[in-house]
Amino acid sequence: MLKIIFTTITCLCIFFSGNDPYLLKRQGMVKTQIENRGIDHEETLKAMLKVERHLFVPEKFKDDAYNDNPLPIGFGQTISQPYIVAYMTAAINPKTNHKVLEIGTGSGYQAAVLAEIVKEVYTIEIVEELFSSAKKRIESLRYKNIKLKYADGYYGWKESAPFDAIVVTAAAEHIPPPLLEQLKDGGKMIIPIGTPFLNQNLVLVEKSGKDFKTKSLLPVRFVPFTRKK
């Protein structure tokens, strides 16, 4: 059934896409990098197919945008590997009525993927230059349900809390207590945490009343790349 839906959506996308030169690459990305690796969360697959990743990477990396790896976006930051974006999105099981907080806007790609699924996305970026460029990009793509803030994500977005889910895309050494507090009862948070600076685990945190449970989902690693200055 899922395959039929997916194929139908793909056909519709092709029909309405006009001259999107990256559509085939995007389809390939979703099929081989995401679906074939076991991610079957329908909304996530749809969103990954819809959001044009090449619009979120620096011009010189456009042709590499759908490759199976992260890409540098400047200031020591990366746009995550497509699989990781899909994995993190599917892990929080987002629903159409959800309000989601993202920590680490970066290029804005993860926020855009979430915005295709949920009602509201709040996203925080600490690097001013990245915040400005992501804001421009999000506005130009007309995402009305994404709100951006330039701040230290450690403290979350208290005024708009609580959130149904929190997606932390920047590696942390511990789970920030303010974020736990801003999570709804029954809410989920996905966060890469680990030893300082090198190894991280993607950890899913679930809130139940005043208690929490964590589950290590996937070992991830800061893969070396040469930063373009």
Binding site: P177, D211, T214
Partner: peptide, 9 residues
Amino acid sequence: LSLKFQGEV
């Protein structure tokens, strides 16, 4: 750190 810690590091 504990998940019970509610302060700020």
